[in-house]
């Protein structure tokens, strides 16, 4: 780019001042404190006691719960991101096609996004219930015998995933719609002239054109899912048999139920490294196939 940006160092940092101060105050200092605490035993009340790497060693080599929670988190993330992104993409493509009632559909699918998890989780605990749940009642009416979702080790996580997708699908859908809006119509016209049917148009025009947005949605959803806490806290408390205990929930338990704050901080840093690694590699890897205009 030949054009010159407006250039001024001091003004730049003046504009950034609130943000930088915020970074230091609400993130930098707390993260440093947490890092220091991750090398201690601390029950929140007494004095932290330095234990070196013991928390990390325990977590990585001796704590079976840690590995189970990592697995659960990966399960939740894979399920929610795959299902959520696919559904959002298909819904966006469908809504994009219709003209009458488009706004209405957009609003309806976005509705759960704006609601508080506190409200939604209580409602869904009830809907999922084996004996009173509307979900099973109507599933049985159409001949599907459904499990007792939240009380079944195999189905509790799928239930949480379904609820999370229901709650969250509207957001990526709107983002995809925005992307679809931006694809020049000439591409489709050209494809039509080449005789491509709808499926092929979707595969060969829509998907490649949307790929940067898909990457964005997937990466941010994975980051969000890895930190999933609210649904678990409010719907299952990690049960039954720990089958829905995610890493963020385990972190919370360590801090405020077990009173092992040093451990909680160590978990946070394990999570931090995992997510950092994931983000870095996914961006590296996908740069090969993501289509930038």
């Amino acid at each position: 780019m030949a054009r010159k940006h407006y250039r001024n160092e001091i003004e730049g940092y003046l504009f950034l001042a609130p943000q930088l101060l915020g970074l230091v105050l609400w993130l930098g200092i707390p993260m440093l404190a947490a890092f220091a605490l991750s090398f201690t035993h601390w029950d929140l009340f007494g004095r932290p006691e330095f234990v070196g790497l013991r928390n990390y060693i325990n977590l990585l080599f001796h704590d079976r719960r840690m590995w189970a929670t990592l697995f659960n988190t990966a399960y939740f993330t894979a399920g929610t991101v795959t299902l959520g992104t696919t559904l959002a993409l298909l819904l966006a493509a469908a809504v994009h096609q219709v003209s009458f009632g488009q706004t209405l559909f957009k609003s309806i699918y976005f509705l759960p996004v704006i609601c508080s998890m506190t409200a939604i989780a209580a409602l869904w605990r009830w809907l999922f219930s084996g004996d009173f749940g509307l979900l099973n009642l109507y599933l049985e009416r159409i001949g599907i015998s459904a499990p007792d979702w939240l009380n079944d080790t195999r189905f509790a996580m799928p239930a949480v995933i379904l609820m999370s997708v229901w709650k969250g699908v509207g957001f990526p859908m709107i983002i995809f719609l925005a992307g679809l809006h931006d694809i020049p119509a000439v591409y489709y016209e050209a494809a039509e002239i080449d005789g491509a049917d709808r499926r092929r148009q979707f595969l060969h025009v829509t998907l490649p054109q949307l790929s940067p947005i898909i990457l964005f949605v997937v990466v941010t959803s994975v980051i969000g899912c890895f930190q999933t806490f609210d649904q678990i806290y409010m719907m299952t408390s990690g049960g039954p048999m720990g089958s829905t205990r995610t890493i963020a929930f385990y972190l919370f338990e360590n801090a405020f139920v077990f009173y092992k704050f040093g451990n909680a901080c160590a978990i946070a840093y394990v999570l931090f490294v995992l997510l950092g690694g994931f983000t870095h590699f996914s961006i590296r890897l996908t740069q090969r196939w993501v289509h930038y205009q």
């Binding site: 970074l23 609400w26 993130l27 200092i29 707390p30 993260m31 404190a33 947490a34 929140l44 941010t220 980051i223 930190q227 806490f229 963020a248 972190l251 919370f252 801090a255 704050f261 909680a264 901080c265 978990i267 946070a268 999570l271 931090f272 997510l275 950092g276 983000t279």
Partner: peptide
């Protein structure tokens, strides 16, 4: 900063 797990900064903040 988006990848910082929120519960851990709760106590320091």
């Amino acid at each position: 900063t988006m990848i910082i797990p929120a519960p851990v900064t709760l106590v320091p903040i």
